[in-house]
Amino acid sequence: MSSRDPGQAAALDRRDLAWYVDKLAQILVFIGGISGIILILGIFVFIGSEGLPFIVSKLNIGEFFTSPLWRPTSEANPTYGILALMAGTASVTGLAMVVAVPFSLGAAIYIAEFARGRTREVLKVLVEMLAAIPSVVWGFIGLSIMNPVIIKLFNVPVGLNVLNAGFILGLMAAPIMTTIAEDALKAVPEGYREAAEAMGATRWQVVRNVVLPAAKSGLVAAVLLGVGRGFGETMAVLMASGHSINLPTSPFDSVRALTATIAAELGETAVGSDHYRVLFTLGILLFLVTFVINLTADLVVRGIGKK
């Protein structure tokens, strides 16, 4: 029964209602399965066709990547330099990881290795609830609560800056990182822990010397996905970063992110204008970067199996 050739099996099937239902289900599942691929190709073709003609014909690539002057609506002399925008995105994402990595890895280790019973369940639910807070709410917290707090605490002129956006983004990225890191820790076979404990290792020694090294690639993937999350986040960063074109030299400088620039400006640009095209060019750039980050994370996870 199990080793029969599938073609032969199909020929032997009766064409009754169950057979048609089965075929229909197969087709629906197939469409569902490949829809992701079709959508992603469609999106890439769309942003490519909107952005590519501009890149090829008009964009000064050198100026694009090295100039901090972003003045797309200037009538006399528009400049399209994204150095400051890239620095903004990088600094906010970087600080977010400084906040999120210890927080989420700590939470994941505690939930997977130390917490038991109710504590563990409650913690898991709470961490996942953090992920359910809409980003505009995070942005609102940044704008109206964190801003005055940062001004008072650090005695700086304005609280909408890298610190504010990075902290908020860190809290936003932490839940997904915690969940993935916890899965990675859980995937370490129980036998490893038992063997280590049998040799007299304490709980912490087991975690540090056995579980963490074994789950290393999963943990790296968790961090990378967090970076991808930070890179793509728009609304909260738009509201909390100050949205200011600036090359940051300290966490208290306001910055502007690539994503926030697209969100703020695309709405009222004339379709087909240079400004419109250059925003799609930013879209292509973001798409490529997140694609590379996610691909790397995927390859790292697959690395586990090869060892």
């Binding site: 901090p68 003045r71 304005v158 509201m239 100050g242 949205h243 074109i245 306001s254 502007r256 703020a264």
Partner: peptide, 11 residues
């Protein structure tokens, strides 16, 4: 004229 860069551009 152009704006000085570095202003906080609110939406």
């Amino acid at each position: 004229g152009e704006y000085k860069l570095g202003s906080r551009d609110m939406h």
